[in-house]
Amino acid sequence: MNRSADALLAPLTAAMAGAAALLLAGMLGFLLAESWPALAHGGWLRFVGLAWYPLEGHFGLAAMCIATLAVAALAILLAAPLGLACALFARFQAPPALAAGFRGLLALMAGVPSVVYGFWGLTVLVPLVARWQPPGASLFTAGLVLALMILPTVALLAHAALAAVPRSLLDGAAALGLTQRATLLKVAVPAARRGIAGGVLLGLARALGETMAVLMVAGNVVQLPASVFDPVRVLTANIALEMAYATGTHRAGLFVSGLLLALLVLGLAWFAARLEPRHA
């Protein structure tokens, strides 16, 4: 190793870092370029409607957008409180050995591929829901499966945030004679709120962006759901279902929905970044 290696080090590694970062720009650029045929004719307005008949030139994304948001909202509404409860349990309530085991289970579940959640939802949950509220494959089932999928992430991040709350704060609360409930809900959770919120936002981003688990259990009918037990189609599922045969403007229309998803998630990431505590 000599000095010429050093002269190369900075530009070479800088090029790699630059390439990695340019990937984002390249990705957005390609999405935009591929969307262009659909955007150029008729502009944004044609994507606002409810009807999605791409072969006949109807590119309404509204129904699928609403379905996407509804499924993600249902999932996060279930996963956030339950995940927080799991985190509180593992941090404060469980005996140490059990807490470690429980955290291990959560970590294991966080790593389970989404297609496996989807498969289980399809073979177990959908028939179960169908007996109660046919047809089974619905917004409700999709929200349930997604909630299960993001719960470990929400719980693990909330646990990490709670673990970072200084012991002295909790001891102080206990010394004041607060009940455990008050100590946890009024002191620990507020102190860890940024980390918990970050975990919830990450879970929300994953719920919005998930394809397989939703595709397999949501029924995939493009419609505005009248009840939570109606089948719906989300944006991601739409792309996965139709990319295989889409050509021309239809393909471009799918890229528009991809672009929309990307912007949605970037917006969420930007919001999450603003939540992070500023470094002194």
């Binding site: 870092a17 630059g18 990695a20 970062a21 340019l22 990937l23 984002l24 720009a25 390249g26 990705m27 390609f30 999405l31 370029a33 591929e34 990450l202 981003a205 919005l208 962006g209 998930e210 394809t211 991601t236 792309i239 996965a240 990319m243 799918l254 890229f255 991809g258 998803l261 990307a262 998630v265 970037l266 969420l268 990431a269 930007w270 970044a273």
Partner: peptide, 24 residues
């Protein structure tokens, strides 16, 4: 800026990577 771009990239839905991969 590079870290920000990487964080944005990390949160991108996999289907969007699929679209990009297919197009690119």
């Amino acid at each position: 800026r590079i870290r920000l771009a990487l964080d944005g990239l990390a949160g991108m839905p996999s289907i969007v990577f699929g679209l990009f991969g297919n197009a690119f």
